[in-house]
Design a protein around this nucleic acid. Structure first.
Lengths: 342, 342
DNA sequence: CTGAAAGCGCTTACAG
DNA sequence: CTGAAAGCGCTTACAG
């Protein structure tokens, strides 16, 4: 049997209130009694029961990270960042992935989950809006990751999609490319929209216009990047450079270029967005826009904890800067070797 | 205020015991009363409090996955597998990463964590052995992932390292290579040891011996693979093929080959182990041994849940098969294009 | 089939 | 500085 606070109190010859105070440092304790309590705890290997504590304090010291089931491997970084930050604050991290479309079953376990946590980081839109509103009304803090707040009034975090895209396209323009294709993401996703906007903004700044012919749809996956690139390569004249709205599509696009017998970047430059792990291993290594997922995870936890600790400032949305990562697929002469961490 | 079981009972005009029975399906309820309860719950948007339930039942419906802080991105797959399987069984997943070496601080939050879960999957050796034994004595089920049970008598899961390595080296031998180098992992890691064993076994089966000159140490990271390969390339005669004990080292090794002006596989074949995501994007795409991390995560959860549900069969260690993934770095003429999911 | 009541292991006013 | 006691929201024998 696990020892309880009563076992400890008995062994130390004090009341359970004293043990509790020692545990929480919630009141001064006579040095002698403290020593006895400390010893009893150590002897028994006592660990307080989280459920009992949770029930008494209406607090769990854990937060949840909800993400879509089909999220790319770079959610790993998000998790890592969140876990690190939560751990540092003495919180635990519960993760939960939801199917997205057909809620239903999810909804129930998700409901149960929310009573296990003090707050949620929502990195998925798969959650029913009204459900989220319910939670908020009940006072559960929520921060949205990579999504517009929309109807939900709450803190949110997203990368600077438009800014990153603008920077990328400006870089291509500086290379001298003028006919630049864009492989778009799903129209419904804010990320995709914003990246398209950045693309157009950059062109406009050069007094170029954003022509529909050069903008082809994609679905943020490898295969759609492949077919999109095939379409672009059939244009006359061919684009000098192509900007894929994410790296996965850029990978597919790269294959399409090779299969057509052309070379990157000599015949077409090709760049992406996200800086997923494989990007640097491609041939040529992919020039792309880095998003700091770990940083997003950490920041989300920080913002959430502030709310949990009672912050009442108005909802805030933080836009995290992105970073241009120049490799070789844009035509730059970046270091040839695959990078080695020394 | 969140509704409690009392609110529901009052609204439905029944006792809290009846509501509880409805919630748990633990007894037959008159159809009429059931309808009233169901309605009250829906109206109020009632969700049972996990802490209270946990305290009453000494159960949490959540399990923990503990992994090393510095784990590669392929722990993402492990998490994914575990989450899927846990979710399907109505369990939640708590994740926790530990620094490994200097326990201390970790130990405390880890202790608290264990009272939040019904069982643990340990994918890290960073946890103090005696601590784990304590948990086991107290009846907390544990399954070890990727580690030998050692002193801890418990279920465990690991990939067939020796078998996978043997298969890989046999493949190289079938190519006709006879002088095959091995880049070893850290001596202390079972995985590394077993892969070395597989390498030697395969050679022995061809009546070749496992010569120390051809076995160079590495640390499972890119840089050590790089330097190890440099050493191997300076041997006379040069190895015809090199087997790196993991893909990360193979990536470093590949760079070393390029820098020396040689080609893979024409001048040296090069293969790895793990099949991490970048492997297929390398030039040439890396032949390697695939480990099913998702499968390991799922199986771990299955085994753990069986224990939680009271299974008392003797501790079992399951060895998961690996799979040879032939790409081009071994000299095979696998499909040239980067693979596309259609 | 249903209810009253005890109990799970904590925390925290309330007294002293 | 310390203790006795109430209460957090559930579950589950025990009666009926």
């Amino acid at each position: 049997m696990r020892p309880t606070i009563r076992t400890v109190a008995a062994k130390a010859g004090v009341s359970i209130a004293t043990v509790s105070r020692f545990l929480n440092g919630s009141a001064h304790i006579n040095a002698e009694t403290e020593a006895k309590v400390r010893e009893a705890i150590a002897d028994l290997g006592y660990v307080p029961n989280a459920s009992a504590r949770g029930l008494a304090t209406n607090t769990t010291q854990t937060i949840a990270l909800i993400f879509p089931k089909l999220s790319g491997p770079f959610f790993a970084e998000l998790i890592r960042g969140a876990e690190t930050e939560a751990g540092a604050a003495g919180y635990h991290l519960l993760i939960y992935s939801i199917a997205g479309s057909a809620a239903g079953d999810d909804d129930q376990t998700l409901g149960l989950l929310t009573t296990k946590v003090d707050g949620l980081i929502l990195a998925s839109r798969g959650v029913q809006q009204n459900y989220v509103r319910d939670l908020q009304r009940q006072g559960t803090p929520i921060v949205l990751l990579g999504e517009e707040p929309g109807e939900i009034a709450g803190d949110s975090i997203r990368p600077d999609n438009a800014g990153g895209a603008r920077q990328m396209v400006t870089h291509l323009l500086e290379h001298g490319y003028r006919r630049i294709g864009f492989i778009h993401g799903p129209e419904t996703q804010t990320h995709a929209q914003e990246r398209l906007r950045g693309y157009c903004d950059a062109l406009h700044a050069y007094e170029l216009s954003c022509v529909p012919e050069l903008i082809v749809p994609g679905a943020f996956d490898e295969h759609s990047g492949y077919t999109a690139m095939q379409r672009l390569l059939h244009l006359h004249p061919r684009p000098e450079a192509v900007f894929a709205a994410n790296d996965q599509m850029a990978i597919g696009a790269l294959t399409a270029v090779y299969e057509s017998g052309l070379r990157v970047p000599e015949d077409v430059a090709l760049v992406g967005f996200d800086d997923i792990e494989p990007a640097r291993y491609l041939r040529p290594p992919l020039t792309t826009v880095h998003q700091d997922m770990t940083g997003q995870g950490r920041l989300a936890v920080q913002m959430l904890l502030a709310r949990i600790q009672g912050s009442e400032t108005p909802p805030e949305t933080r836009v995290l800067p992105t970073e241009l990562v120049i490799r070789r697929s844009c035509g730059c002469n970046a270091p040839q070797t695959q990078s080695i961490e020394i």
